[in-house]
Structure formats: structure tokens, C-alpha cells
Write a protein that binds this DNA or RNA. Structure first.
Lengths: 349, 349
DNA sequence: GTGAAAGCGCTAACAC
DNA sequence: GTGTTAGCGCTTTCAC
């Protein structure tokens, strides 16, 4: 009959508190809920609170959730927790969310993009109040799904082409401009781009930012060598860099779409005995942990992922609590961090 | 009256499926639940399943949870998601857990150890079926609390002194032996230890393992210099290493209790113009991402954190599903990874 | 301002 | 093997 698995866990219900306080259960509910507390006389509130404390009453969120349809639960979808870019985002978001009274259901999506919608359906069944999506591609059916289902959701780190949901991203255009400007100031002219996957906004926008920055510096962007990596991964970066070296051996600098790609480029350079920054300068993007310790210490564009996480949590809270908040895109400014992987180009005979 | 926030989300209930299938709701419940399906005639099951599919029925986990006391939810407590050690643990655990049908509630505890019990109380209110704890200290009140509350829980990465809960850890003793043996083989005799916080099993056990390994190699363990870092962090490692260099300038090698500490040691060495491995060899522990790229590439003891995560999920599943599983400790074997930070000691005048 | 009553969607005795 | 019934613990109309 009793569904509790173990004898030890006693559950104190509203009704018991009500009895002790000498009021009806519904009054207890009102007295204990901050947003309805004003309906109850202060003296009664006090009596109820005291009774609740005496009994060690803990409201049952499951029962409340069944009744209200809300859950104080937020789902966060990440493509890969082990990726050092997403961990700080998650950390920032969960910090802020728990301060706001939400718990986090974490879903590590992996590469199973097809399963994402099912996953979200499952989260909706659990009555999550909203979603933070760090997984979306530039044109992701998941976004349409959330909009359609009227499920509050915000994007973080990546954005989609149509802005149907609020998002928090870094200013990729500005970041690339900082990177290219830095190299041009050092004297570079033959600058290549190691691009990331174009299906993600980060890959796409950084590539476009690279082109724009080259043009702005009076360089022929169309002629600039560019190689696409299939993934934001070290191996993919190495492969793309090898291609680049085969095709355009005369480059003096390369702007990578992220740090992992840059590190892959290091691998390719090392294989061929090409020195960095002596022969070729390399610049990354993200400033992930430890890139200051690699050899040579990586010059890169710093993004505050943790802050992105925090802001996405704030945005989501608004989307949940107010009904019609307009879509907003928060663009965080990146920062150039100069280390040892960039230097003036070597004079050529 | 209706508690659903938005008009769009239609909820299909058991009752509706029952009507369409021409049976009672409880029959639908039985037919759809694998573990009670056998009570229902195959023909009826089929009819019910078809009706459910037609209607797009999704069982409501919240309602089920209220009734059963279970939730298919597992809480994972980590001290710091952004720490590259815990991300793969989380990744491995969540991978396995979601395959088993559980969702993960992630709690980033931070340093608020005092808040842990409250946090767990909150998770219990949400009816989590069990907990994976990556946070515990060697003598953690949280363990007693879980045992007392009869809440299934397993420890991962760290263990407690009394083994009241199952755990998955790396063989720290063996790991330290591998480290010391490696250095001794290279010819080192004056080996120091950069110890981690003794309140965590990793710090404590690795220190003890260091001592044991020194003794096993015929070296005077008591005389071996040892400095405690307050935290497993790069800054703390640097500070401890400076101490070590002040106190015992004649050491030729240092065994760090983890990679972050070893990297901190690099910082201290660099400050003083001491070369690694030329003057002093350094060995880490964990083999976290990118330590192969630092300069010099770090020799370390590899631990498969992802595998630890997976196994902890398996252990937890057993603890949840069977009532009286004995406490088990799974000890994973580490692996020596030799890179460039260790070398034969320089000859001394 | 407070009590009464209904019911969120499901499962598990208990009948038959 | 299936229907009936009774809640799980809470919130929120609706009365007064």
C-alpha cells in the first residue's frame, strides 16, 4: 500500500503541519508559499511556520509539480561535457540556476543529434521549466521544436541563423578581427585560416569574421588560404593544417577557429619540423585551460565561458518567469591574449 | 483549473488510451510497463500499444513518481565541474546512466561542504533513486547521512576511511609505486613528494603510497622531503614547490599527487630558472587532457576517469535495483605514461 | 482570510 | 486477466 521503499524515511505532509497548527492544509500551503503568503494573517503564518519547523516539514516537489505543471528543473544540453569549453559554461549556468532555486538536469547529447528531440520530449515529460542549449547547429530543428512546444529555451555559445530564441555568444567577428589585426601589426601578410565546421555558428561566423578582418586590413581575403576542419578537435586540426601546408607552403601565420584546432596545428608543424612562431605564427580562440602551458604558449582570443553560462541562466529565468520576453542576443566581448605563438614573420630571401 | 501553462501542449493520459483501446486505465498501465506486461493478454497488450502510439501517449514520470516514490533520477555531486578531472567522470557516468534509463541531476557543490547535506535533502525530496558522490572527504558526514537515510549511493574517485558505501577508485598505492620505481630506475635517490590535501583519499593515499614505494626501493622514506599543497590546484602546487626548493634544494625529482600540482611545480621551477628534467624531474598523476602538450610534456600516471564514471554508474544501478548488495570497492589499475619531464639525474660534483 | 473539495496522472492492492 | 478503488501530497478554484 505505502509506496515508500524504505521504512526509515518518514515523510511529513502538509496535513500533519495543518493539524499541529490547527488550520486547514490549504492554509498551510498558502502560508508556506511566498507568493500566496499575503493571503494569510501574519499570526497564522507564524504559527504555521513554527509547526512546519517543529515537524521538519519539507514540501514535496513531485506532488507540487504534478499539480502545477512546473518543476523548478532546468535541462541543459551539451554536446560533450568532457570538452573543456562546455564545462565552464555548465559551471556558470548551474551556479546561477541553483541560486535561483532551480536544479539542473544534465543531458550529454554526444553526436546523436537525431536523438536530441526525443531527449527534449523526455525532459518535457519531466516538466522541466526550461532548457539551456549548448548543442545547436546554425539551423537546428530543435529550435523550431522548442518554439512550437512553447518551451522556454535559450542558446549558449552557439547561435542559430534565425534568431528565434535568445542566446549568449561571444563576438566572433570582433574576435577574429583582433586576431588578424594582431598578426598584421606583427607584419604578416600571408595569413591562413583553419576553419571549424560551418554547421556551427562558431565555425561559420569566425570564418566570415576572418574574411572581413582580412579585407579591412587591405588584404585579399579571397586569396587567403583556408582549410576546413571537420570537427573542433585536435586531430581534425592537425589534418587540416597538413593540407594547408601542402597547398600553401608560403603562409607565415594561421588563425585557427579554436584552441583545439590550433593545438592540432602545432602537431602538424612539429611533424614537419616547422617552427612556431619562427616559421609560422599560430593564434587560437577560446583560451581554454592550460594553453598557457603548451610550447609555445598559445596566443589566443579569450572568451569567458563561465560568464556565458551565467548570463544564459539569467536569460532563461526571465523567459520562464515572464510570459512574453522578447528574444535577446547577448554578445560578450572577447579579449586578445598575446603569448609566445605569434611573432613577426621571418624575413624571406 | 487546468494547471498546464500553455495551451499548445496537449497531454495524453492513460485514461484516454484506455478508452481508445476499450480497456481500463489500470490495464493500460500494466500493458505499458515491461515488468507487469506479462499480466495482460498479448492481444490486449497489442491493442493498447497501438492505441498509445496512435495517440502519441507519453507516460507522465511525475505522476508515476508521486505514486511509486521512484523517479528514474540520479543525483551526481561534484566538487567542481570545471575541473578537468571531474568532467570525464561525469561524462562516463551519465553515458551509462542514460543507457539504463536514468536522468542525471547535476549538483556542483563548490566548496560549500556544509551545504552538501541540505543539497542531498533537496534531492531526496525530488525522490532521486540514488547518488553518485565525487565530493567526499575521507571522513565525510554525508556518507553517514546517506547510509542513515537508506539512500543508495556510491563514491567515485575518492573513497572514505570506513567503507560504508561502494566506491570506484584508482589504485593510488600502485600508481605511486609506478612513479617512484620509474624515477629510481632513472637513477634518482633524492625524491620529494608534492602532496595533496590529506582530507581527500587521493591526497592521503598517494602520500602513503609514496612512502611505501620509497621504502620498497630501499630509500629512507622518513627523510624524503614532502610538502603539502592545500588544494589540488596549480597555484597551490607552485607554492608548495617553492617551499620544497627552499627547504630541500638538493632534490633531483619530485612526485606530485596530481597533474595540476605538477604544473604548479613547473611554474615554480621556471621562476627560479631551474630546468626540468635537466635539474629536477617531475611526475604527475591523472594524465589530464593537454599535459602531453605542455613543455616539457608531462610524465604522469594515467587514470581512466571516464571508466571510473561508468563503473560507478553500474554499481549504483545495482545498489538501486537490488536491495542488499554488499559494499564493493572497485580499484582500477593506473598506467605509467613516460614523456619528457623525467630523465636521469644530472651528475653532481 | 480560511475551509472544503476536487483533482493533477499514475500504480497497486483488492476483488471478481 | 481485468476492472474497481483508493490514494501519492500538493495547489487552487469555489464558497462563506
Amino acid at each position: 500500500m505505502t509506496p515508500t521503499r524504505k521504512g526509515k524515511r518518514r515523510i511529513v505532509t502538509l496535513k500533519q503541519v495543518a493539524e499541529l497548527a490547527g488550520v486547514h492544509a490549504s492554509t498551510v500551503s498558502r502560508a508556506l508559499n511566498p507568493s500566496t503568503r499575503s493571503m494569510v494573517m501574519p499570526a497564522v503564518v507564524e504559527r504555521v511556520v513554527k509547526a512546519a519547523n517543529n515537524l521538519g516539514y519539507r514540501p514535496d516537489p513531485v506532488a507540487a509539480s504534478l499539480r502545477t505543471g512546473r518543476s523548478a528543473l532546468v535541462g541543459i544540453l551539451v554536446p560533450d561535457i568532457a570538452n573543456t569549453v562546455f564545462a565552464p559554461i555548465l559551471s556558470g549556468a548551474s551556479e546561477r540556476l541553483s541560486a535561483q532555486g532551480y536544479s539542473v538536469i544534465l543531458a550529454d547529447v554526444g553526436n546523436d543529434e537525431s536523438k536530441q528531440i526525443d531527449l527534449v520530449t523526455g525532459l518535457m515529460a519531466r516538466r522541466v521549466d526550461g532548457l539551456i542549449l549548448a548543442t545547436v547547429s546554425r539551423d537546428d530543428p530543435l529550435v523550431a521544436y522548442c518554439v512550437e512546444q512553447d518551451l522556454p529555451a535559450v542558446l549558449v555559445n552557439r547561435a542559430e541563423t534565425q534568431s528565434r530564441l535568445s542566446s549568449v555568444v561571444s563576438d566572433d567577428t570582433l574576435g577574429m578581427k583582433m586576431a588578424v589585426d594582431h598578426l598584421v601589426e606583427l607584419g604578416h601578410r600571408r595569413i591562413a585560416h583553419l576553419a571549424g565546421p560551418a554547421r556551427h555558428s562558431t565555425g561559420f561566423l569566425r570564418r566570415r569574421g576572418f574574411t572581413a578582418a582580412m579585407t579591412a586590413n587591405g588584404l585579399d581575403a579571397d586569396a587567403a588560404p583556408c582549410e576546413n576542419a571537420d570537427a573542433f578537435a585536435r586531430g581534425a586540426g592537425a589534418a587540416a593544417m597538413r593540407q594547408l601546408l601542402d597547398t600553401s607552403p608560403d603562409i607565415t601565420a594561421v588563425v585557427a577557429a579554436n584552441d583545439l584546432l590550433a593545438l592540432g596545428a602545432y602537431d602538424a608543424l612539429r611533424e614537419r619540423g616547422i617552427s612556431c612562431p619562427g616559421d609560422i605564427s599560430v593564434i587560437g580562440h577560446n583560451d581554454m585551460p592550460l594553453v598557457d602551458m603548451v610550447e609555445p604558449a598559445l596566443t589566443t582570443i579569450r572568451i569567458s565561458h563561465r560568464e556565458m553560462g551565467r548570463q544564459s541562466a539569467d536569460l532563461l529565468q526571465q523567459a520562464i518567469e515572464q510570459h512574453d520576453v522578447p528574444v535577446r542576443t547577448i554578445v560578450l566581448p572577447p579579449q586578445l591574449v598575446v603569448r609566445r605563438s605569434t611573432a613577426a614573420p621571418r624575413m624571406r630571401g
